[in-house]
Design a protein around this nucleic acid. Structure first.
Length: 204
DNA sequence: TAGAGGATTGAT
DNA sequence: TCAATCCTCTAC
């Protein structure tokens, strides 16, 4: 396994949908308060300023969305429903607002720390959702805008290769407000992982 | 400055 | 099925 953080060039690719797919199988690490945790990414979603589900749709710049305009390889963390911290990877070059939401991981390193942060939850309940995995890894809005090439949070190559027939795609979760953009098949998942947030709807 | 709503979760 | 919970954004 390769423990070196992914090169900046990976995040600066200009196709956020492709990056979302490529992130499957990679390892997301955090080193916070002396606790090292990591998990295998098994579910992602792509967001782009070009479509309505994105916070920075039509390049809307606000205090919250400013991080989305940072260079690829920056963490975008925001609070959802007043309770949950959601972690995204900013992609593309500076001032192009695109990001990949990490929706589920499989716990690999520091599982005991994850269980502690998740208040004793075990098994798939640990990290099978965007709010859950952020909690398990200790990710909060304090990491918003942080460089993914740093020492607190980073991503490395994984230990698995998934063939095309294992990777499923479908509409993103919880973006019905985006009209027809909600139908874009920009959600990607490792089909046989028990840690998916919700099953991927088969494409008809 | 008030009010509505959200890229979710867990309990009922 | 629904409450929790609070920040963000929009409208007035």
């Amino acid at each position: 396994m390769e423990y070196k953080p992914l090169p900046t060039g990976f995040y600066e690719q200009d196709d956020v949908v492709s990056v979302a797919r490529q992130l499957l199988g990679k390892f997301l690490w955090t080193d916070l308060n002396g606790k090292v945790t990591a998990g295998r990414i098994v579910e992602t979603e792509a967001y782009s300023y070009l479509e309505r589900a994105c916070h920075a749709h039509l390049e809307r710049r606000t205090a919250r969305t400013e991080t989305l305009f940072a260079p690829g390889g920056t963490a975008y963390v925001y609070l959802c429903y007043g309770i949950h911290h959601l972690f995204n990877v900013v992609t593309n070059r500076e001032n192009v607002a695109e990001a990949v939401l990490i929706r589920a991981i499989e716990p690999v390193i520091g599982v005991d720390h994850m269980e502690e942060r998740r208040k004793g939850q075990k098994g798939r309940a640990l990290t099978s959702g965007p709010g859950k995995l952020s909690s398990a890894l200790g990710i909060t809005t304090g990491l918003d805008g942080v460089d993914l090439n740093g020492e607190r949070i980073w991503i490395t190559e994984g230990d698995s290769h998934y063939s095309d027939d294992v990777i499923l795609s479908g509409p993103r979760i919880g973006v019905d407000y985006a009209g027809e953009d909600a139908l874009l098949p920009w959600r990607f998942a490792v089909g046989d992982s028990p840690y998916l947030s919700v099953p991927v709807k088969p494409v008809l």
